[in-house]
Design a protein around this nucleic acid. Sequence first.
DNA 1: AGCACGATTAACT
DNA 2: GTTAATCGTGCTC
Length: 207
Amino acid sequence: MPPQVPRAFFARSTLVVARQLLGQRLVRIEASGQRTSGWIVEAEAYIGQADLGCHAHVGRTRRNAAMWGPPGLAYVYFTYGMHWMLNVVTEREGFPAAVLLRAIVPSEGESRIRRRRSGRPTRVLTNGPAKVCQALAVDRRLNGHDLCAPAATLFIERGRRIPNRHITRGPRVGLTGVPEPWKSKPWRFCVTAAGIDRMEETADGTT
DNA sequence: AGCACGATTAACT
DNA sequence: GTTAATCGTGCTC
């Protein structure tokens, strides 16, 4: 079985995809052909127009159009005047939903990641959605990119299976002003510190 | 054409 | 704990 995660993986319930993305590897092929990657350790689900925390709740616009596309597309958007965020589109085409990738643990190309992150300490290197994009050189050019295409320069690769005991769930981050019940939906999934330790011990392909 | 805001981050007290 | 940075986006005038 090829390592690149197929479209069928993303064509499922967004909550399932968010959960199952933990432990998988997010891979960026740079212009030089070098691989830079990290294991996904935090993700959040944004599900449909009814979800008032989801960008799709305002209807389809030029910015959020990728969410209506087929599963497996990247939805990359700009916010706070300076930050890019990376999501993976889920469910069926025409239903706007996606998973925000909030944190990774560096796997390959760590020196490039550290350079792009201005040498920041390991504990704050890639623990935020804008940090993930900075680390892997993701910006608007990757909006709408097909992560399932054979020649994709950004894609998800099969990684480690994370047991439930190493996963925590909680409310999504940063939804100030979003009304209940959406604000408190436990749609954020994180690998625990113990889970990360174990993942690093047992993972292959670390460089 | 102008304006208020944001799925954040880093630097501060 | 607080707050400035910074600009694309979507809305109003």
